[in-house]
Amino acid sequence: MTLLHATAISKRYGGLMALSEVDFRVAPGEFVAVIGPNGAGKSTFLNVLTGLTPPSAGRVLFDGRDVTRAPTHRRIRAGLGRTFQHGRLFARLSVLENVMTGAAIRTDRTESQLRALSLGMLDRMGLVGEAHRAVGSLSYGQRRMVELCRALACGPKLLLLDEPAAGLNLGEVEQLMARLTALRAEQELAVVLIEHNMGMVMRLAQRILVLNFGCRIAEGSPAEVQSDPAVLSAYLGEGYGNAQH
């Protein structure tokens, strides 16, 4: 069974192929990492999956429906969630209100249900004490956790995380990993993780997709990818991968 199925996704910017014929599948509850050097097309790929950037070619199926041309908010309502590389919160809303905006995706929830659900989510992420603060007064790490809470409050089946550990200190990264693991133990939540922190990727991911210059250069379990010559060459330079042969 497939939750997300992207086939032959290409994105061209003028003469630059940001993505070329990338195939990608995610099963329900699966944890997949997408890695690659800077400029490999990882964020563009997430933008295509969430509908922020239309692909030049290819198809995106989500939960059995073709969403290639669907606007972003429809995909989110269908169960896709995402956080951003640099954290994007609603600056004029409090922490709680930010999360409530996510929870309001279900229109049948009353105001008090929204509040209770959002407070519960903040509690699980260790942020309930900050609920009534302005987001501008939070630390960088806290802001990123609030964004994650907001995305989770939408109740996604698949969560796309764009470098969630960037800018976090070691303790915060440990916390983030522990909370993601705990969450996935309780509910069926598939995750696609873009991350440069290889320790995090290797510990969490069941499968890894490696992109370079917009192309898929490898895919497999963490162990397979770690020893793949193409991957080593992309990360460590031309000679290295070839020298392994």
Binding site: P71, H73, F84, R88, L89, T101, G102, I105, C154
Partner: peptide
């Protein structure tokens, strides 16, 4: 505050 983030919450 942020149109893209708003879309990302299903708005």
């Amino acid at each position: 505050d942020d149109e893209t983030a708003a879309r990302m919450t299903g708005i």
